[in-house]
Design a binder for these strands. Structure first.
Lengths: 211, 211
DNA sequence: TTCGATGCGGAGCGAGCACTCCGCTTAGTT
DNA sequence: AACTAAGCGGAGTGCTCGCTCCGCATCGAA
């Protein structure tokens, strides 16, 4: 773990303590996926079968526990992007967007705030490179117009998040149609978008401010 | 007032009390617009220049105060839609989407939950009729593809909300580019969306469950 | 002017949250 | 087996927030 929480547990843990730590991480992933990041620490400890005291002996606070889970999500996204790159004819980007949306659907509200990592995070840089490659590939095949930038894709994910979080309980598949509309909007077209894209810096500001 | 809070204040109020009631509504609109619906009741009372006790003598609870503001928002949207209908060549729908997005940008997080009204609200029905007319007009002029439904437009608004709430502090104009992408996605195209639209009932369920 | 109904402020209550503290338990070394 | 550093549970703390209560102030009809 090279995340913010690193260094908090430098020394060797006793076997039972190390086991509880893993139980807590697994419980947190499960509870957050089901209830969102608003879930209480008490619930996480209960699911892990330990007391809250144990949770706070292993993690300095709730945010650190969340931060530790970021790495998993980023690696999942990275794998998703890698798989998408294999797809021929510029269809990889769509596959990636669909895959990450589906993941977000299953993991209630986690993705959003979980991106809230230091910008120099290694896995995050990897994901960004892969997405840039997917975008370039899509442009090369003419499935996405030239003026679309990587920051536009970030905005697309924010937008899908809005739909997913709103409709998840009532219409769990609704986001698919919305994604189809978005993808159609990315396609080559004679009339330009007419507004400047976000800069990379602006995206980073959003991510570091609140995810 | 035909909202949920109606009937709470049936008898005639003393002059000072009626005045404070208006002050509270104005203060709530201001504070919610600036800080979102999470703003505390104490803050609203402070801005209105009264105590929290006064707030709770005029409104049964915070939600009722919010509900009372819905009417204003709906009427604003209704006016927006009416003005948009005047626009020629099927451009009215785009104008409406832009206008309601701009309104949402200025009124932090209010629109979303404020829609959470009883489905038979008169003003809401009006707005829906007008949006249906705008959509039909756009289709007639070929600026929007036939398979788009009114529920798709609701989903578009949810999606824009996601972008607005995420980017408002860092890039207040970002939503415009996203809207441009969405509008491009609504345009006629040879390949269909490939997923069913939401039903009206599903939209209502979402609105009544949490907005 | 009088006077009761109405309205007022803001301290205080309870619920829910993240987080801490401490007396008891246990791992694992000697 | 004995011993101690490490770990443990969960009651308790402090904070925020929506909401209530009550002694005092004010309106406005008579």
């Amino acid at each position: 773990m090279t995340t913010a929480a690193a260094g908090f547990e430098q020394r060797q843990l006793r076997r039972d303590a190390a086991e509880n730590r893993e139980l807590l991480l697994a419980a947190a992933a499960k509870v957050f996926a089901e209830q969102g990041l608003g879930a209480g620490v008490e619930e996480i400890a209960r699911v892990a079968g330990v007391g809250v005291g144990t949770l706070y002996r292993r993690f300095p606070n709730k945010d650190a526990l969340i931060a530790e889970l970021v790495q998993d999500v980023l690696e999942r996204m990275s794998a998703l992007a890698s798989a998408a790159i294999e797809i021929p004819d510029g269809g990889g980007l769509e596959r990636y967007l669909e895959g990450s949306s589906a993941y977000q659907m299953e993991h209630r509200g986690c993705l959003p705030r979980l991106w809230n990592t230091s910008t120099d995070n290694e896995a995050l840089v990897q994901v960004r490179h892969k997405i840039a490659a997917l975008l370039a590939d899509a442009k090369r095949h003419g499935t996405v117009r030239d003026e679309i930038t990587a920051t536009d894709l970030t905005m697309v994910m924010w937008s899908i998040r809005g739909v997913i979080e709103t409709t998840r309980d009532v219409a769990p598949e609704a986001w698919r149609r919305h994604l189809a509309i978005l993808i159609a909007g990315l396609r080559p077209s004679e009339d330009p978008l007419g507004h400047k894209p976000l800069t990379r810096t602006q995206v980073d500001d959003v991510l570091t401010k609140s995810g």
